[in-house]
Design a protein around this nucleic acid. Structure first.
Lengths: 195, 195
DNA sequence: ACTTTTAATGAACACATGTTCAATAAGTTT
DNA sequence: AAACTTATTGAACATGTGTTCATTAAAAGT
């Protein structure tokens, strides 16, 4: 059940044209008509595959997020809920964002729809869910774990927002240090024996 | 230096028309032409005041966020960086979001630009900045406080995102309890003597 | 009340959007 | 290779976008 070659060709042309246009102008100023002219695709054909320019961009983002997911699956030594473990995971995210900085500058732009943010949120959220220790749930029976996970996930994204606002000038090493300091503040009892 | 009455009338007409349209359709489907027809405003006049439909909506949001800011300025007993203080502040935000639920359902919608999220972020962020104890900065000289504040601010917004996704079904009382539990998890040493 | 200032209007323009439909061309099956 | 299936095309249409400009009308200043 392979996909029709014509579809692949059309979508590739559009993606390629979008990347080309993004080099000189912001995604918000790129029109469907303009994109189709450059890709040499009939405008009606565009609507057979996408609703707007953002949906073409989202296909790139899916690939990028998949890369993040893969980097996360790399095995490493896991112990229970410790600062070192959490930060080790989060550092991967920092590296990832830096690697695809050009894209994340778009994702965090104020004119862009929330959907991209949520895509990142949901991805990081699955990582967070996996890092919850089992003992926590039994020791805190009243805790609705979804709230905890969203809290922790968005806290990390808060770091990324701040990094974005400071135009990615902070080095990953420095960012890493800041995160460890912040998490340590919230976990003063666990300061000893780590790092 | 008062504003021209005609401007006020035009803007009020447009705001009123937008509210009316929002009762039956989503903001993303409302066109400038449609808005102007209902408001009985020439479309060219619209462009003298706004760039797009979102800018009209944003005027409402400015009022709403101002309401949040005011509620926050209510004096209450402040001690140093304790769970009770933080949660007391955050509960105000929960009440505020519930009060304007219809608006926040729009703000957290995935099709909506990030600008609204950032407006809320920046507002809550100023509250967070004010609640940082002075001793912290001297005891942690290497900490870039902007990262800490953005981390904490976005963590709270993470709770709101989760609330939104659960269609605001969680009661404020329950949400409050969840927050206290979560913050307590991160501050195990301070569990005693609070609440 | 009269004058000055400026906001709102309507018409026009080029271009974008979103959709339909018959004709064509390209890919897939046999 | 022929028959099929279906993606793409171009044309057309109504509507929306963003801008310009002379004209009108309403508010502000005197």
């Amino acid at each position: 059940m392979k996909k029709d070659l014509r579809i692949i060709k059309t979508q590739e042309s559009l993606r390629h044209a979008l990347l080309s246009l993004l080099k000189t102008k912001s995604i918000e100023t790129i029109t469907i008509a303009e994109l189709c002219r450059l890709a040499q695709i009939n405008r009606g054909t565009f609507y057979l595959h996408y609703k707007d320019v953002h949906e073409v961009f989202k296909e790139y983002l899916d690939v990028i997020v998949e890369d993040l997911r893969k980097s996360y699956e790399e095995p490493y030594y896991k112990t229970n809920y410790k600062i070192k473990d959490i930060t080790a995971d989060m550092i991967k995210i920092f590296h990832h964002v830096k690697k695809y900085q050009d894209f994340y500058q778009i994702i965090f732009d104020e004119r862009i729809p929330m959907m991209y943010y949520y895509l990142l949120f949901d991805t990081v959220r699955t990582f967070m869910r996996d890092s919850i220790e089992e003992g926590l749930l039994t020791s805190q029976p009243d805790l609705q774990v979804d709230y905890l996970i969203s809290y922790q996930t968005n806290a990390i994204l808060g770091i990324l927002i701040e990094w974005h606002r400071q135009e990615y000038k902070t080095s990953i090493k420095e960012l890493n240090m800041q995160l460890i300091t912040i998490v340590s503040l919230h976990n003063p009892i666990r300061m000893h024996g780590n790092d």
